[in-house]
């Protein structure tokens, strides 16, 4: 009896210990190892060196990542928010809601590598866009669509039912209600959802590998050309082995820092978990 209590207690402390320890370890490890690599030139210069990436910086990869992410968010956010609004406010048919929910669930279950395959076949080959930011951005957009939709729907769902019915009772259309009440009062949560979706897209590699991210490119000027991306760059540096480990730490540092900052902003906007 006593032993069981102790055993469970040990298990509990072990579980939380491992979890929090891992979080702390990952961030401290990357920040500690990466900090010595970070310098203005690392952030603001292009990669160079006999084996690419052993010297120089990662500027094109940072800008490239912003391009990929921006494209994905621009394509995904309107569709995701519209779907959430449709389900919450406009759809009067319950069966339709079920269908929409299962469509969104199914999309969220598609592995990101398969989305890469899709974008390659559809955009790179069939539409003839070639490897470019738009091709990858589309794959990323599909990937983050359910992510944003779920959060937007949750935000809309928290509006009080009576408030919506009061607007109906005044004879106002749902469109008017959505624009005047729902959007303004969920603004922060929506922005937060979009930023988090952006973080998710920024860290994803599989959809980019063969659709638009390349080992070396200069800073992109349009979404119709290929570009470098931080996660892809990190992968290539690691794959090259020991020679480029320093820059790999630096790249990981920049990615984690970017994502951490954006996450904190998003959390501050959306309020901590309710």
């Amino acid at each position: 009896m006593r032993h069981l209590s102790k055993l469970v207690k040990l298990w509990a402390f072990l579980g939380i210990g491992i979890t929090l320890g891992t979080v702390a370890f990952i961030f401290l490890f990357i920040f500690y190892e990466g900090a010595s690599v970070i310098s203005p030139s690392f952030i603001l210069e292009s990669p160079s060196g006999a084996i690419l990436g052993t010297e120089g910086g990662i500027f094109p990869a940072i800008i490239g990542s912003l391009f990929f992410t921006g494209t994905a968010v621009a394509m995904s956010a309107p569709a995701a928010v519209a779907a959430a609004a449709y389900i919450t406010f406009f759809c009067k048919n319950d069966r339709m809601k079920v269908v929409l929910h299962s469509v969104i669930n199914t999309i969220s279950g598609i592995p990101s590598i398969v989305l890469g395959l899709f974008a390659y076949s559809f955009l790179v080959k069939s539409l003839g866009l070639g490897r470019c930011i738009l091709s990858s951005g589309t794959a990323l957009a599909v990937m983050i669509l359910p992510f944003i939709e779920i959060r937007a729907e949750k935000a809309f769902g928290e509006l009080s039912e009576e408030m919506i019915r009061s607007s109906d009772a005044l004879g106002c259309s749902r469109t008017y209600m959505f624009l005047k009440i729902a959007l303004p009062s969920c603004k922060r949560e929506l922005i937060s959802a979009v930023i988090l979706g952006g973080c998710y897209a920024m860290g994803a590699t599989p959809p980019l590998i063969f659709t638009g991210a390349v080992a070396y490119a200069s800073v992109p000027e349009s979404i119709f050309e290929p570009a470098m991306a931080l996660p892809m760059h990190l992968y290539l540096l690691v794959a090259q082995g020991a020679t480029s480990m320093d820059t790999a730490y630096g790249t990981a540092f920049v990615m984690l820092a970017l994502i951490l900052i954006l996450t904190i902003i998003a959390r501050a906007l959306g309020g901590f978990r309710k």
Binding site: E162, R165, S166, A169, G171, K180, I181, P184, S185
Partner: peptide, 17 residues
């Protein structure tokens, strides 16, 4: 019809503005 017949609910639901 809604303009001619107003309705007030049980729980007061002011809009968040």
């Amino acid at each position: 019809l809604r303009r001619k017949v107003g309705l007030v609910f049980q729980t007061p639901a002011p809009f968040p503005m």
